[in-house]
């Protein structure tokens, strides 16, 4: 395993409690390796471990990467504490991303839960940049509470290109969106099932119900894509930790076509 490249934090934005977006650029300046929506980097905070974090910025961004991450353990806490000017290690990009070539000319259902919106943002920004390339697009985004929803400010710009449906488990008095699980509005949404692709990212339980709802709405299994998460220490296919059935999440995923992984998706503790 080679040492990471050194990056410097350009700026840090607190999105919601415990969740920040870092914009990082190579310490030596210059360009960054292009990434595809859905891919990830391994981010290393000095002495405190390395974690896989999806790209969350637009692929059109030049000279820097954006990563949204939540402080949930030692490694992510160290990364979330970084301030502009601080340095970190970066290895990547890794993995197979969203099937952007499959989306062109079709209707796109984007289904996200919680932090699962972050790996979908590059895909959304691609659609927003060229909405005419797609038949249509809808975003179904669910979270626990209104104050835990990501990118609400940016979402205003998305609404020109795609229909946005927000759902929360627990609503406050001034909440005007849906209440309940994200599959609720999905079940009654209008879309041309035979020419629609769904991309799903969120907790596994949420993705299971989303897949079931999509199947009930007439989508075939080959038109559903989802992003998986497993423990990773290398992202090179060597450490073995991210194995999931016959797959390595790091190199065969993290984005999988549902029809390829249907037998594994419902096996518990896999």
């Amino acid at each position: 395993m080679n040492p990471p490249a050194i990056f410097t934090v350009l700026d840090r934005r607190e999105e919601i409690p415990h969740t920040v977006t870092l914009r990082i650029q190579p310490a030596q300046g210059g360009t960054v390796t292009p990434f595809a929506p859905g891919q990830f980097n391994m981010l290393y905070g000095f002495g405190s471990g390395e974690v896989p974090i999806s790209f969350s910025g637009a692929t059109a961004e030049q000279g820097y990467y954006s990563h949204t991450l939540r402080a949930v353990g030692k490694s992510t806490e160290a990364l979330a504490r970084l301030q502009p000017g601080d340095q970190l290690g970066v290895r990547g990009p890794f993995g197979r991303g969203w099937p952007m070539d499959q989306l062109a000319g079709r209707h796109v259902l984007i289904i996200a839960g919680g932090l699962g919106l972050a790996p979908l943002q590059p895909l959304i920004e691609a659609i927003v940049a060229k909405p005419a390339d797609y038949l249509g697009a809808q975003l179904f985004y669910g979270g626990r509470r209104p104050e835990e929803l990501l990118y609400l400010a940016r979402m205003a710009a998305w609404r020109d290109a795609l229909n946005v449906e927000l759902t929360v488990d627990m609503a406050s008095r001034d909440w005007s969106g849906h209440v309940g699980v994200v599959t609720g509005p999905l079940a009654s949404a209008k879309f041309p099932a035979s020419n629609t692709v769904a991309v799903v990212c969120g907790p596994e339980i949420m993705m299971r119900f989303a897949v079931r709802t999509l199947q009930q709405r007439g989508l075939d299994d080959a038109s559903i894509y989802l992003s998986m998460e497993r423990n990773m220490h290398c992202a090179l296919g060597h450490c073995g930790r991210c194995q999931w059935g016959p797959n390595f999440v790091c190199k065969d995923g993290p984005v999988f076509r549902y029809s390829d992984i249907a037998p594994w998706f419902h096996v518990r503790e896999l």
Partner: peptide, 22 residues
């Protein structure tokens, strides 16, 4: 299969990455 472990010394300015069987 293996794990990687990141450690620092007491000064906090030197860190290492080790790979070990897991």
């Amino acid at each position: 299969c293996f794990a990687v472990e990141d450690t620092t010394d007491l000064t906090g300015d030197h860190a290492e990455r080790w790979q070990r069987w897991d």
